[in-house]
Amino acid sequence: MSATERLVFRWDLDKTYLKSEFETLREMMRIPFEKAEDKIAAPGVAALIRGLREAALSRGRSVRVYFISASPPQIGRAIRRKLELDGIVYDGIVFKDQLHRLMRGKFRHLREHIGYKLTELFKARVAESPGSAEYLFGDDWESDPLIYSLYADVVAGRVDAVELEALLRAMRVDTPLIAEARTLAAALEPADAVRRIFINLERPTPPAQLRGYGARLVPTFNYLQTAACLYEDDVMSPAGVIQVARSLLDDSAYSPERLTNSLADIERRGHLTPAAHAALRQALTAAGLLAAPARPSLSERWRRWRRRRQEPARPVARLPAIDYRTMVGLQVPADAATE
């Protein structure tokens, strides 16, 4: 990655930045009346976003942080205040104008998520400088893995307008939104801009279910795992990762063991190299956040050496291309079942 290219971080809001509860109608009804002080950010997320901006600015890189939400603009005030309270500097935030759609009698739009989010992402990309690199952050509640992957491949020119239209039709996206998406996609200058897609496993979805999206998409269980991968991509400093870990320990009652296990898990899943893992462990131990690992006995070291010779580290399978038709085929019945 060039040190001069602009870094763009696009964040989903509910279930990614905020620990929003909308599993029941009652919880959903409560959201518009929540004050900023009532809203709870996911553990470590604020420290992560602050760290990303600091790391970019300290290296003289231009940086943009955007939020995209399917919530109505009526809750915008509380959200903006919440971001301010968390010390988040951002460059834009988009809400879904549900009331406007409702007044136009478009009830189906209330649930229409894919078309809305994809067109908003395209609009943002059209306004962005073509050389910028993007990192996308979502969750496993709605269709973020599909939307973000499709967006990344359309931007890269791997999915053309015809294919995009066919896929959106299969996903039963509203016709005007399909047309808008096609127009916007056609206006994009092809660039392999999306570096990684992080999916916060809030439900938690088994990571293997997202393997079809390839190695670009990283399912993470907490924001230390996300921070570690961003460190590996050289967009997060060790100090930033330490801040995320500290935030988890101080604000969310994490234990050093939980942090240690999280790092080991993301390495085992092939999203973090052993070298980056070792460097981060060293940094976190030096910061007093993790206990120094006990020195293994001679026989244990011999066993480990023998094992390393026998079993090379397992990389995540790098798929040549995402089979969106299969993904969409999987998606449609699931959506239909919830309607």
Binding site: F221, N222, R303
Partner: peptide, 20 residues
């Protein structure tokens, strides 16, 4: 690891030690 990735789990509470 392969089995874990196919089911819901919380990695924060699980470590794996290899034994051959």
């Amino acid at each position: 690891q392969q089995l874990l990735e196919g089911i819901a789990y919380n990695p924060e509470h699980i470590d794996i030690v290899h034994a051959g």
